[in-house]
Amino acid sequence: MLYSLARPLLFSFAPERAHELTLSLLKSAHKLGMMRQNVAAKPVMCMGIEFPNPVGLAAGLDKNGAYIDALAGLGFGFIEIGTITPRPQAGNPHPRLFRLPEAKAIINRMGFNNDGVDKLVENVKAAKFKGVLGINIGKNADTPVEKAVDDYLICLEKVYNYASYVTVNISSPNTKNLRSLQSGDALTELLDTLKTRQLELAEEHQHYVPIVLKVAPDLEAEDIEFIAKQLIQFKFDGLIVTNTTLSREGVEGLAYGDEAGGLSGQPVFEKSTACLAAFAQALKGQVPLIGVGGILAGEHAKAKKDAGASLVQVYSGLIYTGPTLIQDCVNAL
């Protein structure tokens, strides 16, 4: 109710300014004890972790882990922060975030803007949150794609002790050539190297932290089969399906509909859910799936579960629906 009243004001600001303002207001409300949404407990065991409920926050909203405690007050079963890179970077030039309210959609070309992995670790250490925290890692824009694995290793090593699970993001369309890591020898090398290092870190710290992959919805059937086989071969702990799409189906002719970047929100729902179902069939229950993309109501979360997801994540839907979306999805699941 409160969000429906606030949304017109927030939408009067440029999208990135509204994003920053919303997080600042949420943090202030949390400090004053005004922001607490009680969500029913519906525990789910996945990847060896007990999630209080199956509805999480997708990466991208809190890139630097600066708002973890405030976001936790909304009742998420888990929170994923990032994407983080080894070194700070400004991301792509402004404007780089666009609302398409007629389609309940967002286009972004942020480009992994973040304060660097060391700052994120500082923020995580300062947070009081004791729930399930995912940390999403990527590569710096100026790191050649042939050296990408080095950036992922740096981030994995630095966040390992502070994450409930680590997400390897190779599917953002806004870092040049990043999606090339989803195929061929590049994917094999990446998964093999990261899995080997994960097991070494587990031995060093006497604590196993699951590692999951995040993929794009713009995959062909043969891509899905290949990725599934690689995930099984290297015993990855989970798969997030999906990131944003390069397709413009559903936003043709709308203001900003032809802007470059990844499309999220309602138009990506069918595409991402079909991709999820295809991975579920290919993986045959051997790798847990997290469904994300176009969830704007509880029925959408239920559809992700029916397609094979053990957990779901929301982001763009929050912008259009508000925090009540979390409870609606928990109820539907």
Rank of each mutant, 00 (worst) to 15 (best):
L213M: 14
S183R: 14
V166I: 14
Q206T: 14
P217Q: 09
S164P: 03
E157T: 13
N161V: 12
G184V: 08
V159D: 01
T193C: 12
V209L: 12
N136A: 09
I211H: 01
E200V: 13
S172Y: 04
N177W: 10
E204N: 14
L133N: 02
T188Q: 07
L153D: 05
V132P: 01
I137R: 00
V159Q: 02
D192A: 13
N161S: 15
G138T: 09
N174F: 07
T193S: 15
G138L: 07
N174G: 05
L199E: 14
A202K: 15
P144D: 00
L201W: 08
P210G: 11
N161H: 12
K176S: 10
T175P: 06
T188P: 01
S164F: 07
S183F: 13
L156N: 01
K214C: 05
T143L: 05
S183T: 14
E200G: 05
N140T: 10
V132N: 03
V132S: 03
K214M: 10
I135H: 06
S171T: 12
L187K: 03
G138W: 04
S183D: 10
C155I: 11
S180Q: 09
E203D: 15
L199F: 13
L201Q: 07
D218S: 07
V166F: 01
L181D: 00
V168G: 02
V209Q: 04
Y152P: 01
D142G: 00
H205W: 15
L201T: 06
Y160T: 08
K158G: 09
T167V: 15
E157S: 11
L194T: 00
L213S: 03
L178C: 09
L181C: 04
Y165G: 01
K214S: 06
P210T: 12
T188Y: 09
K139T: 03
I170V: 15
E146V: 11
L153Q: 09
A148R: 00
L181V: 04
N136S: 11
L194E: 00
T188E: 12
E204S: 14
K195W: 09
K158I: 14
S164T: 12
V215N: 01
V149L: 08
C155G: 08
G184A: 07
P173E: 11
N140G: 05
A148S: 05
H205G: 05
L153I: 13
Y152G: 01
G184H: 10
G131A: 14
P210L: 12
L201D: 05
L213K: 05
P217C: 11
K158W: 14
D192R: 12
L199V: 13
Y152L: 07
G131H: 13
D185F: 09
T196I: 14
V212Y: 00
E200K: 13
T167S: 12
T193H: 12
